[in-house]
Structures are given as C-alpha cells and as structure tokens.
C-alpha cells in the first residue's frame, strides 16, 4: 500500500516535471520567435560602426580595381545597401580562394563579390535573396513566332565554342534534339550571327547579352533563361542580425527599382 502511494507520488512528480519542462520549452521557443520577429539592432549587427565588405576585385564589371579604388556593380550595390542602413562601408580586396575564410574568421562582415549560391557552404554561411541571375539565356529575334526552347527543333543555334553554352548544346544533342550547331570563337559572333539571320537562336550568359545589347544599342531580341545562376550576398551563419538587415535592405532597394537601376548602369 505504502509502495503504491510512493509510486503514485513519483508519477505525479514526474507529470509536474514534464509539464514544467514543456512550459519552459514553450516559453523559450516563444522568446526565440519574438526575438527573430523583432527588428535587429544595427549596432549589434555591425558593432564596429561600419560594414566591412570582402570583394574579389578581379571580376569586371562586377568588381575591378581601376588602379586607385575598387569599382563596379557589386561596389555600387554594397554602397547602396550601406546607405539604406545608414552606416559607412569599407571594402577589402581579397582573392577568391580566401574570400570565405575572411568571412568565417570575421575579417569581413559580408561578401558581395558576384557570389554564386553554394549549397556546400551553408553550414557556415547564410545567403541573402539573389540580386542578379547570370544564367544562360536563349536569344531569338524579336519577330520570331515562338520564343521558347521547344520551338527550336532543327534550329540553327549559335554559341561560343567551348563555353558553358557549348556544353549545354552538346547536352541537347546527346539527348536527341536535332540541332544545327554553330560554334563561334567569341560570344559576340554568336549574337552577330543571330542579328544577321545566320542563326535562329543564340545561347550566351545573361551578362554577355546585356553587354552586347549595350554595345550595339540593339535590344530588340527576345530571350529566355534556360539555366539559373543567381548571385547573392553572404554573411556568416551566426551573424543573423547582419544577414537580416542586409536582406531587408536588398528587398527595399529592389522594391524601389534601385537594384534594376544599378544593374542597368553597369550591364
């Protein structure tokens, strides 16, 4: 009888303990949610009072060194984000091989350097939303009846020899698509061939197309992305506030058309 009472008491204690644990966990979880939902503090996110951006300035027109300072699309983007957050920005020119190490070691706060999103780094790094897509595009004349890949059976497709576009066209060929390959030495020639009616379509990356249209003042073609290669900003995985602020600033700049303007300025 006494043993049963003791067991009951123990069971009651266990129940109380379990309830208390559950309540504590729920409270902690709620605090975490509230903390995540609240606006991050810029002073906590960037305690040095500035944003230090790591950039490999060997990628014109995204970032390059003009002999005195770093310039380019990524530099202007970083400056716009810093202005949006009301904090100064400083750049560190770092070779690609050391970029992520610089971020992880805390030497820089962010990487803004034509970075492609790397799934293998997500244990260490948080990426923002993408600000640019440099995927391959298929370009067709403005008056083409159809502007999609399916319409390209038997088509003459121009591309740069040995480029990623070439690899794509080879893959289509291996998959049984009847395509006439038109390899050119330069991507410009592939786009010229399209303009001259020597090709039904051309495949280049999005940046090449934009730079060509800028150079030739010709933007009458249709294009469609056939691969996606998004560029994003990287922050260290534990710098949640910094990441949140930067991602928010990027979204606001996008909303106001500032990102599109910066891209148009450089590409």
């Amino acid at each position: 009888m006494a043993a049963t009472a003791t067991r009951r008491l123990t069971r009651r204690k266990r129940t109380i303990l379990a309830l208390l644990t559950a309540a504590l966990s729920a409270t902690l979880f709620a605090i975490m949610l509230i903390r995540q939902a609240s606006a991050p503090d810029i002073n906590e996110a960037f305690p040095a009072g500035e944003i230090v951006v790591g950039v490999d300035a060997s990628f014109p027109p995204f970032a390059f060194d003009d002999g005195r300072t770093a310039r380019g699309l990524d530099i202007e983007l970083a400056s716009a984000i810093a202005a949006e957050l009301g904090i100064p920005v400083r750049f560190e020119n770092i070779g690609f091989y050391a970029l992520y190490d610089a971020l992880i070691s805390g030497r820089v706060d962010l990487l803004i350097s034509a970075l492609r999103i790397d799934r293998a780094r997500m244990d260490d790094v948080r990426y923002t939303q993408s600000y640019y897509d440099n995927g391959l595009v298929i370009v067709m004349p403005a008056d083409a009846p159809e502007t999609n890949i399916e319409s390209l059976a038997e088509a003459r497709i121009a591309f740069e020899y040995a480029s990623s576009a070439d690899t794509q066209v080879r893959a289509w060929g291996e998959a049984g698509r009847a395509i006439q390959r038109l390899p050119y030495e330069l991507p410009k020639y592939a786009l010229d061939a399209l303009q001259l009616g020597l090709a039904d379509a051309a495949i280049v990356d999005a940046t090449t197309l934009r730079l060509y249209q800028r150079e030739t003042m010709n933007s009458t073609s249709h294009f469609e992305y056939i691969t996606s290669d998004p560029y994003a900003i990287a922050a260290r995985i534990d710098r949640v506030d910094a990441w949140k602020l930067v991602d928010g600033a990027l979204a606001a700049l996008k909303e106001r058309g500032e990102i599109a303007r910066i891209i148009d300025d450089w590409l």
Binding site: S58, P61, F64, E160, Y161, A162, S163, D166, T207
Partner: peptide, 16 residues
Amino acid sequence: NDHPRWTGAVRPSQRS
C-alpha cells in the same frame, strides 16, 4: 583559365 569575367582568363576558344 577561361572564366568569362575573371581578369586572369582568356576566351574558351583561346584556352582550348
């Protein structure tokens, strides 16, 4: 190297 935009690179046709 034949990266389209790295300053140390050449065109893919040249690399090949």
